[in-house]
Amino acid sequence: MIKLVAIDLDGTLLNDQKKISQRNQVAIEQAKAQGIKVVICTGRPLEAIHPFLAQLNLEEPGDYSITFNGGFVQKNDTGEVLEKKVLTSEQVKELITLAQTLDMPLDLLSGGKVYTLETSTNHLSLYPEINPLLTHIPTPLADLDWQRPYNKAVIGYEQQLLDQKITEIPRHFKEQYEVIKSRAVLLEFMPKGVTKAYGLALLAKDLGLTAAEIMTIGDEENDLPMIEYAGIGVAMANAVDQVKAVANVVTASNEEDGVAQVIEKYLLK
Score class of each variant (00 low, 15 high):
residue 70 G to P: 07
residue 257 D to W: 02
residue 108 L to S: 01
residue 121 T to W: 04
residue 185 V to K: 02
residue 158 E to Y: 11
residue 190 M to Q: 11
residue 219 D to N: 14
residue 104 M to K: 05
residue 130 I to Q: 05
residue 155 I to Q: 02
residue 13 L to R: 02
residue 45 P to I: 08
residue 241 D to P: 01
residue 187 L to V: 04
residue 30 Q to H: 15
residue 133 L to I: 09
residue 5 V to N: 03
residue 257 D to G: 01
residue 62 G to V: 12
residue 51 P to L: 07
residue 254 N to E: 08
residue 169 I to Y: 06
residue 73 V to N: 02
residue 224 L to E: 08
residue 266 Y to W: 15
residue 140 P to R: 12
residue 204 A to K: 02
residue 169 I to Q: 04
residue 77 D to I: 07
residue 187 L to C: 03
residue 20 I to M: 11
residue 199 G to I: 05
residue 184 A to Q: 10
residue 178 E to A: 01
residue 179 V to G: 05
residue 158 E to P: 02
residue 93 K to H: 15
residue 252 A to Q: 15
residue 134 L to H: 02
residue 1 M to T: 10
residue 107 D to C: 11
residue 207 L to T: 04
residue 164 Q to A: 07
residue 25 Q to D: 06
residue 99 A to H: 05
residue 61 P to T: 13
residue 269 K to D: 15
residue 246 V to D: 14
residue 159 Q to M: 09
residue 2 I to P: 00
residue 97 T to M: 13
residue 96 I to S: 01
residue 196 K to M: 10
residue 32 K to H: 14
residue 164 Q to C: 09
residue 221 E to V: 06
residue 214 I to G: 00
residue 228 E to L: 12
residue 219 D to V: 06
residue 155 I to W: 00
residue 255 E to L: 15
residue 267 L to A: 09
residue 55 Q to N: 12
residue 234 V to G: 00
residue 35 G to R: 11
